[in-house]
Amino acid sequence: MELLYASMLGLLTMSGVYLLLRARTFPVVVGLTLISYAVNLFLFAMGRLNTGMPAVLGQASEYSDPLPQALVLTAIVIGFAMTAFALVLALRAQGELDSDHVDGKGDQG
């Protein structure tokens, strides 16, 4: 299971990073979202992969680590705010510059 999870994270990160290196705003934001998924999953996995052990007292005999979960929960919400901010920045650039380039070149290229 651990190997599967690790390879999943690797491929997820790879897709995200590739998009992050594109020259336009939208793919970059999509890439950012993919990377934040990967980061959240990575942080979550620091509490190890447990099956059927939610951190709710009285629901099971053993519990998974609640701390990474609490951290990731806030990270998901903050990640949303960040994605939204990046998107709006992209829109603002579109409005002001009439361009969605992030490679420092104009629309001529």
């Binding site: 959240n40 996995a45 447990n50 099956t51 059927g52 951190a55 998974s64 990731v72 929960l73 998901i76």
Partner: peptide
Amino acid sequence: ARFSAPDL
């Protein structure tokens, strides 16, 4: 959900 984090 699969790995015991319903809140997440």
